[in-house]
Design a protein around this nucleic acid. Structure first.
Lengths: 262, 262
DNA sequence: GGGACCGGGG
DNA sequence: CCCCGGTCCC
C-alpha cells in the first residue's frame, strides 16, 4: 500500500498538477491533501471520481482545508478534534479545518495541516503550540483504539537541523524553534517514528521551498511534511520518498509529495 | 503595408498570445494595442524587441493604456489630446491614457481606446461623449497636416445594427445608442470611411464577444474595433479582415485583431 | 467572466 | 512569490 501527503496550496489552482501526478503514480492508494483552500460546496470532486477515486473533504473558505483521495472507500471518516475527543476545552482549535482521519485496511490514517505559527512568540505561534498539545490528546484517543496509526501532512516544523537548508539562527525562525520541536516531540513520543529516516540518514532532503528568492532553484528547502508511524507500521514500511518532480512544474505548489510504502 | 488593431485586455497577461500572433502574422507592419493595463515602467518591451519590433507605449496603472508595436521605427509619436491640440478645455480627458499617434511612410496612424461608457446616461457615458467630441477637434488638427490619416482601435460603438448580434433594445445598451453613433459619426464625417465595409457588406462579423454567458461560443458578438481611413488610404486598401483565431485560444482577450492591408 | 488592485496569509 | 477574497471596470 502507498500513502502520499501533499500540501497543494489550493486544490482548485493545482487540480491539473494533482491529476497528472495521480496518473504518473497510479499505485498510490491514498493521497492526503492539505491547504485545499476551498469550501466543501466548491471542491472539485469530478476530476477525482472520473479517475476512479473517492474523495473525503473537510474544507473552509480561503485558508486551510484538508482532503483524502482514495482508490478504495475509506471507513469511519472523522473531521476535526471534537469528532474524536467529544467536547474539547478550546473549541476554537476546531475553527480552522486542519484535521481529518479515516481507516483503510486496518490502518488509522490521520491527515493534518499543523498551523504555521507566523512569528515566533506571536499569537498564532501560541495557537500552533496549543493545537499540537490538543493533537497529543487526539492521538492518544486514536491509539487507544488501534495500534496501527499513520499520521501525515504538513507539520510546519523541521524536526532536526538536517531538515533545514540553513539551521543558523533557527531560534528566530518559526518552524525551527526548540519549543515547537519539543511540543511536537511530546506528540511523537506517544509512539510515532519518522519513517523517512528509516531509509535516509542524510540531510539535504526537503519537502517545502519558499516561493520567494528562488528557494527551489537554490535548494533552500525545509523538510516539514512527514509520515510518522506507530511501530507495527514502521516495521512494515519498505520505502519513503520525496517526489520533487511536481515542484519543478510551472506554477507549482511550494510543497511536494512525500510517499510511504507499507 | 499591414496595420492591425487589437484590444488585448492586459498586455502582460496576453504577452504569449500577442507574440504567437506576430509570429503567425509576420507581414503585419504595425500592431496597435489597447487596454495594455500597465504603467510604462512595467511594459514588457523585451518580447517585442527580441523579435525585431519597436515599441511605443502610453500606459497607466490598471485601466486603459495603448501601445504601438512596429517593425520599422515610427516618427513623431504623440500621446494624448494635448500633445496635438496644445492646451485643452477639459484636461481630465487626458487623465486616462487612450490615445497615441505616429507616422509611418507618410501615413498618420492614430491608435485609440474610446471610453466604454458603462451605462447609458451615466457619468461615464457623458465622459465618453465629451471624449469623442474632443477627438473630432484632435483629428481636425491632424487632417490639417496630412491627407493620409488612419484611425483604428476599440471605438466601443457598434456603428450599425448589422454590427451587433442582436440589435433589439439597443437604445438601452451602451455602445449601441443613437447618441453614441451620432457623436462618432460627427467624427467620421471629417472624411473617414469604415474600410471593413469596402470588402464585406454582410452582417455577422464581430470583433468583440463578452466573456460572459458563452458569448463567443454562441457568436453573440459586436463589431466595435475598426480601421477608419481618409479617402486616399481608403482607395489604396486591398483588404480588411477580422482574425477570429486568437479569440479561440485558451484565456483569450475578449477582442480579436482587425487587420487592414494598404 | 476575467482583467487589475488591495490587504491578509504563508 | 503566490494564493485567496473583496471591489472596480468592462
Amino acid at each position: 500500500m502507498k500513502i502520499a501527503t501533499w500540501n497543494v496550496n489550493s486544490v482548485r489552482t493545482r487540480i491539473n498538477h494533482i491529476c497528472d501526478w495521480l496518473t504518473t503514480n497510479p499505485d498510490v492508494d491514498v493521497l492526503c491533501l492539505q491547504e485545499t483552500k476551498v469550501i466543501d460546496n466548491d471542491f472539485p470532486h469530478a476530476p477525482f471520481s472520473d479517475r476512479g477515486y473517492q474523495t473525503y473533504i473537510y474544507g473552509q473558505k480561503s485558508y486551510n482545508g484538508v482532503a483524502m483521495i482514495s482508490r478504495s472507500p475509506l471507513e469511519n471518516v472523522q473531521m476535526g478534534f471534537a469528532s474524536v475527543l467529544g467536547k474539547i476545552a478550546e473549541p476554537s482549535l476546531d475553527d480552522q479545518k486542519r484535521l481529518i482521519t479515516a481507516q483503510l485496511a486496518g490502518i488509522q490514517i490521520v491527515n493534518m495541516y499543523v498551523p504555521n505559527g507566523s512569528e515566533v512568540g506571536g499569537e498564532k505561534y501560541e495557537y500552533k503550540l496549543r493545537w499540537l498539545r490538543l493533537l497529543k490528546l487526539y492521538l492518544q484517543a486514536l491509539l487507544a483504539q488501534s495500534p496501527n496509526v499513520l499520521i501525515c501532512g504538513d507539520f510546519n516544523v523541521a524536526i532536526a537541523d538536517i531538515d533545514i537548508y540553513d539551521p543558523k539562527n533557527r531560534e528566530t525562525k518559526v518552524m525551527a524553534t526548540d519549543i515547537e520541536r519539543d511540543t511536537l516531540a511530546e506528540v511523537l513520543n506517544l509512539g510515532f517514528q519518522d519513517v523517512f529516516r528509516k531509509f535516509e540518514p542524510e540531510g539535504g532532503h526537503f519537502s517545502w521551498w519558499d516561493y520567494r528568492a528562488g528557494g527551489f532553484a537554490r535548494n533552500r528547502g525545509w523538510r516539514i511534511d512527514y509520515h510518522f508511524l506507530t511501530a507495527p507500521l514502521y516495521e512494515r514500511a519498505t520505502a519513503c520518498v520525496i517526489d520533487k518532480e511536481p515542484r519543478k512544474m510551472p506554477q507549482p505548489s511550494d510543497h511536494t509529495p512525500v510517499i510511504v510504502t507499507l
